[in-house]
Design a binder for these strands. Structure first.
Lengths: 340, 340
DNA sequence: GTGAAAGCGCTAACAT
DNA sequence: ATGTTAGCGCTTTCAC
């Protein structure tokens, strides 16, 4: 930067002003300095800039699993909104490992980012508390710790389950199944609760069986599908709610192998509108998770907290999911081929 | 850090030694200092640390599209290998925008990261040249600029196309189609070339039609599928190579709507083994893109360049793709239900 | 509007 | 082995 000053024939402080407060500099000097910057290919050192200024224009986003499309959407939503505010978002992927997540948080803490966004899989209150105790604003996404010790952005997962069951019931289905083990995952537990609520509202008119799966991955769905196929044949099942889209698609595949028609014999739907769920021959009805909105809202809350300073009151934003109806529950319709 | 020194009753320099050269400190002092660090909840300021030390332990990864599963795999591969080396990877998503990509590169440049990994969609030589001229090592992934002015990690996309066509021919298919417009995308052009080579090797025994699509997205596939369905019915087509998996799945969906059997009437395959391609009722044969390996290799090349310093010779690593055969070209087989 | 100078928090070479 | 000190590159008062 001293070089730039010399080449431009001005003082070092003036170069700094050109970079940070261009309005405070006369147009002529400004041009001279910018010329020198271009000539020298000068790139300001953001480490020194942050050290001296004491503030950062970056936000750290820590996601537990970057291959999950919800978290990708969150990252994009956060990034786009942050860009509007002149901030940039750095993403660290924890690769489903708690220790890596901790390392990622510490990294951003050390880098003195202006704030951290955390999308964990399970409870991370301890880590959040540690970071927050260092005075770093932190917003948690997609997990409700219960304690309101930080801002949170959540999707109403109970409503997700409720919407799903409600939809099937509205379509005339009365013998439902909810597929998805691993109740220790918060979204699963909440969606299950919502499904139950919708079924209970029908007071006995609608039955519900709950099918555990070992894992939430396709193989788990294939196994569950075999079990469910028998239920369909026995006339005990006409509507399936899979807790994830991937599970739902696996189940459809098994049904197809058994010549069980979807949605003719049984309607199938997922719960976490996933880009991976597009491809099926039978597009899957699902529930939209509003990932872009979650990311955007999280940045908004973070900036608010930074602005508020000491007298900040934590806020929890609950986003409402939306039903996305496609043919796996209502029958065939392909946009590109309307005459079918 | 001065506080830590005071609490521990040692000099500031000793605290620095504890952090950076623990071996140079007596066990007793070490324990005292670590105690003080824990007590005060001290977190070192990495901006100051980098500024003073003049080196960074982070690598910047700029990807053009984080929702593309290849880039996600690259990120994971890079991150895992970097972690083994005690480095961490920061991901910036350019959201398919060239200006954002430039901003991301500049950001990492300003942050004085030890090196940059760039996975662009189209040519980015100018940007790379600019960054490199600042002395920052940069490795380009998945795009061959032609000029060997930096290390590159590529997948042999011509081989991808060749493997795909070779597979269909080996399965007895003789009337092929290659689907995928947008030849200005390097992977598309290369895969097309590979397909042609395989067909030419058969010297007229095998025919090939090339079907352009407006976009590489599912709607584009649906439209192409309609056209192809007519070709199948007319007996002019028995094997389809879609340049992406998503395109392939869309085509299968249209075939199914027309009661055309896959792979009975026509085999269909994709070219970029995509996690999104799992779900279909007919799992898609495709070609593995080795994303994890690409990420890993890119970090390896970057570290080598950093180590080599001035006398570094740029290297291009060409990874070989692998065929992943599934039922869309060979008939039904579902692992979970072997008796089908 | 401009230039000089005092740090920001840390590292590393030096002296002890 | 430990303490001392001069910067790293920048921002920002503060006089001019």
């Amino acid at each position: 930067m001293a070089d730039v000053a010399r080449v431009a024939g001005v003082a070092l402080g003036t170069v700094s002003n050109v970079l940070n407060h261009p309005a405070k500099v006369s147009p002529a000097t400004l041009a001279k300095v910018q010329g020198a910057i271009a000539e020298l290919g000068f790139v300001r050192n953001s480490n020194a800039q942050q050290l001296a200024a004491g503030r950062s224009s970056s936000i750290g986003l820590v996601v537990i699993d970057i291959s999950n499309s919800l978290f990708v959407d969150i990252a994009r939503g956060a990034q786009r909104f942050a860009a509007e505010l002149g901030m940039n978002v750095l993403v660290a992927n924890s690769d489903n490992r708690a220790d890596q997540q901790r390392a990622d948080l510490d990294f951003f803490d050390e880098a003195r980012v202006s704030g951290i966004l955390l999308a964990p899989m399970e409870d991370a209150s301890d880590d959040v508390a540690r970071i927050r105790s260092h005075g770093r604003p932190t917003v948690v996404l997609n997990y409700d710790s219960g304690k309101a010790d930080c801002c949170q952005v959540l999707i109403d997962n109970e409503e997700v389950g409720y919407l799903a069951a409600r939809h099937l019931i509205d379509m005339g289905r009365t013998r439902l199944a909810f597929v998805g083990g691993r109740d220790y995952l918060q979204p699963v537990a909440l969606r299950r609760r919502g499904v139950r609520r919708a079924v209970e509202e029908e007071g006995g008119r609608v039955s519900l069986q709950e099918v555990p799966t070992e894992n939430l991955d396709p193989p788990g769905g294939l196994r569950a599908g075999e079990e469910l196929a028998g239920e369909v044949r026995a006339g005990r099942l006409d509507g399936v709610i899979a807790v994830t889209d991937l599970l739902g698609m696996a189940i459809i595949q098994v049904f197809n192998a058994h010549s069980i028609e979807v949605p003719g014999d049984v309607a199938v739907m997922g719960c976490d509108h996933n880009s991976a769920a597009w491809g099926g021959m039978i597009p899957l009805t699902s529930v939209q998770m509003q990932g872009l909105d979650m990311g955007r809202e999280a940045v908004r809350l973070l900036m608010a907290e930074i602005e508020d300073g000491a007298d900040h009151v934590h806020v929890t934003t609950m986003l409402q999911p939306e039903l996305v109806v496609r043919e796996s529950t209502v029958g065939r319709r392909i946009a590109a081929n309307p005459d079918l």
